[in-house]
Computed example of a mutant assay.
Amino acid sequence: MRIWDINPGYLNRQSLLGEHRELHGIVSIIVNGKKGYSKHPETLRWVDYGWALKMRHELLAAEMSLRGFNEKTPVLTTSNEGIFNEGAWPEKYIDAPWEQFTLLAAKYEKKEQGRILLPKNGQQLWSQHKYSVMARNVPLYKKIGREVANISSLDSTDEFSALAALLTETLRTAPSPGGIRNALQHMWGYVSDHVPGSERNTEDWSLSKLLQSVQQGVLENQEPYLLASTALSELKIWIPEA
C-alpha cells in the first residue's frame, strides 16, 4: 500500500492507476472505520488529513486526464473538525521524497517510465518543477535557480534530498490566480508559435482556457521541455473553474 508524495507525473501507467486505487482504499478505511489495513503505516499517516487525501486524489486525476484516462470517482472525505483538516498535509513521510525517486528508479529499471523521467541530478529536478514554483513564489523561484547549479547528481544525497523535500513541500501550497497565470503565460510562450492562429494576448483568457491551450499545444507538438513539467497537470487542481 503506497501513496506517493512526489508529483504523479513521475509515475508510470501501472503505478498511477495503482495509487489511485489504493488511495480510494485508504479513504474507505478511514471514513468507514474498516479494519483491513487500518494499522498500516501508510493508512495511519493520513488519518485526520481528509483534505490532503482529496487533493492528492485531484492530482492523480489531473495527471490521468492529461494522459487520456477518464477519471470519474471523486473522493468523499468527511468535513468534521479534526478529520478534514483543510490546508494541512501529513508531517511525516514513509520515505523521504529523494528516497521515493530512488525507489522508483529501481522499480522502473528496464520498464515503462512515467510522463516525467526520473531526475538524474539536481538541475533536471529543478527544471521539472520550476514552473510550479514560479506559480507560487517568484522570489523562491529566483533563489533556487541561482543555487541549483551547485547540485551535481543523485549521489549528492544531502543537497539533492534537501531540494526534493523543498520542492515537494512547496507544491503542497496553493498558488494565487495571478501566480498561475504568470507561470502558464511563460509556458504558453514555448508552444504558441506552433499553434496555428494562436493569440499572443492571453490576458482575457480564463485560467482554464489558458491551461487547456498550453496542454493541447504541448501534447500535439510533443514539446519535450514542458512534457517534463510538473505544472502541466498539477496547476489544474488549483484553478477554481477547472
Rank of each mutant, 00 (worst) to 15 (best):
W188D: 02
P74D: 06
L66T: 00
V27Q: 03
V31Q: 15
W4K: 14
G217V: 09
R115W: 00
A162W: 02
E112C: 07
E203K: 06
G36Y: 12
G82E: 12
Q215N: 02
I83M: 14
E199Y: 13
F69E: 01
T168N: 12
W98M: 11
H186N: 06
D95R: 14
G145M: 04
W46L: 06
R115L: 02
K72W: 02
L163N: 01
K54S: 12
T77Y: 13
A135H: 02
S208D: 06
L60D: 11
L66K: 01
I29G: 02
H186P: 01
K236D: 00
I239S: 04
T168C: 13
G217W: 09
S132G: 15
R146H: 09
G82T: 10
W205S: 09
E220S: 03
S28V: 10
A106F: 04
D193S: 15
S233G: 03
W46P: 06
E112D: 14
K209W: 04
T230C: 08
M134P: 05
S28Q: 14
G114D: 13
T157M: 03
K130N: 10
R45E: 10
Q123E: 03
G145R: 04
W46T: 09
P139T: 06
T173E: 06
S38W: 05
G179I: 12
G18K: 14
E99V: 04
I26Q: 14
P139F: 04
Q222K: 15
L53S: 07
S28K: 08
L76I: 11
S206T: 15
V214S: 08
S127A: 11
F84W: 11
S233Q: 00
L166T: 12
E234F: 03
F160P: 02
P90W: 15
A228N: 15
E99K: 11
R181T: 11
Y93C: 10
K54Y: 09
A135P: 03
A242E: 05
E91R: 13
I116P: 07
S198W: 08
K72D: 04
